[in-house]
């Protein structure tokens, strides 16, 4: 009972943080066009969270936040959400391995996923005869988002306390070994 309550609390926290990370680029501070792209906080938040506690960032919640972000940030609706969902599911499928292999594997996997997402997005836009995005801006976007990712990991670990479960006390394939 206690455990499930904790999961629901974490889900609420994830929802609030997700809404904030959608709202942050919308702050009406600057309407001038010359500026660097804002990093995708929702991407960093979702992947970092799914690696650590997949149960408290359920698929439908991620989907709802992703589609809301697409709508609010004036992106082609559905495309980036689709890619984000596929990326988060990829991570979710192998979260145990990622947890065990440490931060470097996690970071390089996330970086690879982000690059693939950006490339696929532009390919999809190109196929559908939409306006493709400038490569230079996309590179800036990828760099910034990857810079934000470790910060997000630290934030989740130390402040929100979304942590990997303790491995030393977990049963392996042969049962619990003390």
């Amino acid at each position: 009972m206690n455990v499930s309550l904790k999961i629901w609390a974490f889900r609420a926290v994830y929802l609030i943080l997700g809404l904030l990370s959608i709202a942050y680029p919308l702050l009406p501070l600057q309407f001038t066009p010359v500026r660097i792209p804002t990093p995708d906080l929702l991407f960093a938040l979702t992947l970092a969270w799914v690696v650590r506690q997949p149960a408290s960032a359920p698929f439908l919640l991620v989907a709802a936040l992703a589609i809301l972000a697409d709508a609010a940030l004036m992106r082609p609706i559905g495309l980036w959400a689709l890619l984000l969902l596929v990326a988060s599911e990829t991570v979710r499928l192998s979260y145990r391995t990622i947890q065990e292999r440490g931060l470097w594997l996690e970071f390089s996997l996330v970086a690879g996923l982000l690059v693939i997402m950006v490339v696929l997005q532009n390919i999809m836009l190109w196929i559908s005869f939409s306006q493709t995005l400038e490569v230079e801006r996309l590179l800036q976007f990828v760099m910034l988002t990857l810079l934000i990712y470790p910060v997000m990991v630290l934030f989740l670990h130390y402040i929100i306390r979304v942590r990997k479960p303790d491995h030393s006390n977990r049963p392996d394939r042969l049962g619990k070994i003390r």
Partner: peptide, 15 residues
């Protein structure tokens, strides 16, 4: 009153 900007470097708009 402008409540938000577009939040993306690829489109220039506001709400």
């Amino acid at each position: 009153e402008m409540i938000t900007d577009s939040g993306s470097p690829f489109s220039q708009s506001g709400l």
